[in-house]
Amino acid sequence: MVSKKTKKLITFQETIFNLQNYWSNHGCLILQPYDVEVGAGTFHPATTLRSLGPEKWKAAYVQPSRRPSDGRYGENPNRLQHYYQFQVLIKPSPENIKKLFLDSLSSIGIDKNVHDIRFIEDDWESPTLGAAGLGWEVWCDGMEITQFTYFQQMAGVQCSPVSVELTYGLERICMFVQEKSNVFDILWNKNGTLYKDIYKENEKQFSKYNFELANIDYLFNAFESLEKEAKNLLLNELPLPAYDHSLKASHVFNILDSRGAISTAQRAGYISRIRDLVKQVGLKWLEEKK
């Protein structure tokens, strides 16, 4: 039986500590979040750029992620425009990665012996990154807690060797483990600070900005400038700063999208402009390492 005594409530920050410790013990570098707005942990150069080329690589980090159109003014118990992912990237993918992953779950309070853990087909694609992979959504009792992906292509380049990427949805995992039905009720630390104490106001303000106030003209111009800057940096053989500007352009695009300023017809065009930048960044990055 699971008794109340033996079951320790794992806080949000402990979840992060535990994952960091677990993956550190398994040889991963523990990195810090990338300091540019991104839509997912995958965009961190420690994943995108490091998954390219033949060198071994093992890293794990938390990445704050922004998806402007997912904002709900803090009124929806399950959706946020800013949330956290815990990202692991290992190249080449180890033989026992599935077991490593399942064991990591017990470090954050999910006992695979009493929960129904499923691997549901999910072939991942990121049109903006020119990336694709095969893998699964990992479900715990029907809830998606992690994306498990073998990268096949990144920045338009075929991956060899293949990296494996694990992306833990930290809020969802904590809601599940702490048995909360509202993301804002997640216990952040042991002293009773809740998720809402830190982020509720952010959700309100950013939703208002993303959906109502973001200046469309300014953002369209910003996109053009950022793209121009990235191109110029590429011409000057500086793929890393060029990548930063591609990410910024991508974020601007996401805000425009949530603002409803991009028609279906235009969408594909903008996405392919970002992809073109990322592809060139990838190629330059590989060239430079040679």
Binding site: V2, V114, H115, D116, D141, G142, M143
Partner: peptide, 14 residues
């Protein structure tokens, strides 16, 4: 322990 049922139900609720 009925945990899976509980989990399934809360996902649908969410």
């Amino acid at each position: 322990f009925g945990l899976i049922k509980k989990g399934n139900e809360s996902v649908v609720d969410a």
